[in-house]
């Protein structure tokens, strides 16, 4: 089922999350036998310790981070990360919004930033603002309908990752 929005487009394909065993299993499969997923998500600590192995998987790798990961550690490894996924355990847990804002604003991360977990249409406007450009929606969400969410508001007041200059600096006159 198509549940991934990447840079404004709907894509299909689930990106499985790998733990240490899953990572070893995928890595040891023979090239030809691989039933390769479009990509995989690997938790930050695992990815950091098995960085070289991850690079041999022959599929896209996203680094999965959560509320408890130390962002300064993550930041130190940013140059090696092509894709970062931030996990939202529940949509009412908004910690990931600040993580995104910091990755983009403070640490200058420019690669793909994907919101995963309990993601639904009604968060997309805010998620897009703080710097996410990819969204793995919950299975029950209608992706087509969800695309409208990005235009819910025309002139938000605040500065954020999508618009670093707050409205008040563009409004005077």
């Amino acid at each position: 089922m198509a549940n991934l929005i990447r840079r404004g487009r709907i894509e299909s394909g689930n990106w499985p999350r790998l733990d240490a065993d899953g990572l070893t299993a995928l890595a040891t499969q023979k090239q030809g036998e691989r039933d390769s997923p479009a990509g995989v998500l690997i938790p930050f600590e695992l990815w950091r310790s098995k960085h070289d192995l991850c690079a041999t998987l022959g599929t896209e790798v996203g680094v999965l981070i959560g509320d408890d990961d130390d962002l300064t550690e993550v930041a130190a490894h940013l140059p090696h990360a092509g894709l970062i996924a931030v996990h939202f355990p529940r949509f009412t847990n908004g910690c990931g919004y600040s993580i995104a804002r910091l990755l983009r604003g403070r640490y200058g991360y420019q690669g793909e930033l994907r919101a995963v977990g309990d993601i639904m249409r009604d968060q997309l406007f805010y998620l897009g603002r703080v710097g996410f450009d990819a969204f793995e929606l919950r299975d029950d969400q209608d992706c087509e309908h969800a695309l409208n969410a990005f235009s819910d508001f025309t002139h938000p007041y605040q500065a954020s990752s999508d618009e670093p200059v707050p409205l008040f600096r563009r409004r005077v006159g």
Binding site: N93, G94, Y97, S98, R101, Y126, R129, V130, Y157, Q158
Partner: peptide, 12 residues
């Protein structure tokens, strides 16, 4: 205005 629909702080 700053707090209205602040994108980062809607789910504190």
């Amino acid at each position: 205005q700053w707090s209205t629909l602040h994108p980062e702080f809607a789910f504190l």
